[in-house]
């Protein structure tokens, strides 16, 4: 039972560590701070589980192995969800626009177009991928630099296809500018 309680509170532990890390760290991007916090909290959680659950308890090897996998899966699934939740607050266009609306009260479509519309949008996304070391520019041509996000993109493309969305086509015909 103690193991379950510790695992349930793991997102709270990550949040507390994240509060400290985000205040101390100025070198990394906010997402990297979140990942670092999850890794630090993982070590703390392992120590807590060892001290409160497994220390001094005679357990069969098979039960120890299954408990290890159980804790590993649950902790990583919960903290992955926490990371996504944090990421929504960081990058979600809806939240960002909602925040702008909270400040302004009402926004005209033309207030949003100069920032999110037009080919400038592409530059924002390209620079974002370069900042994450996944893309690099060589002689005016963009080439892949890392593979982590590429594999993530492939997995999402496969999931999108299985779910019947099929929106991750690699080549698409340009459509007309929507009327705003």
């Amino acid at each position: 039972m103690r193991m379950l309680i510790l695992l349930i509170i793991s997102p709270i532990l990550v949040f507390v560590v994240h509060m400290v890390v985000s205040r101390l760290s100025r070198r990394f991007s906010p997402q990297m701070d979140a990942i670092i916090s999850i890794l630090i909290a993982q070590i703390l959680m392992a120590l807590l589980l060892y001290y409160f659950v497994f220390h001094g308890r005679p357990t069969k090897t098979i039960e120890l192995v299954s408990a290890f996998f159980y804790c590993f899966i649950v902790y990583n699934a919960l903290t992955y969800t926490y990371f996504h939740f944090f990421n929504i607050s960081e990058t979600s266009r809806r939240i960002r626009t909602a925040y702008e609306l909270e400040k302004a009260g009402h926004l005209h479509v033309s207030d949003i177009v100069p920032i999110y519309g037009t080919p400038d949008l592409i530059d924002i996304y390209i620079e974002r991928v370069i900042a994450l070391n996944q893309l690099t520019c060589k002689n005016g041509r963009y080439v892949l630099n890392g593979s982590l996000f590429y594999y993530a993109a492939l997995m999402l493309k496969a999931l999108s296809y299985i779910l019947g969305f099929q929106r991750y086509s690699t080549l698409s015909k340009p459509s007309k500018i929507p009327e705003v």
Binding site: I122, Y125, I126, R128, V129, Q134, L135, Y142, V143, L144, F149, Y150, A152, A153, L154, L156, K157, Y168, T170, L171
Partner: peptide, 8 residues
């Protein structure tokens, strides 16, 4: 972002 990666 992921679409750009797949295209490149």
């Amino acid at each position: 972002t992921l679409k750009i990666l797949l295209i490149v």
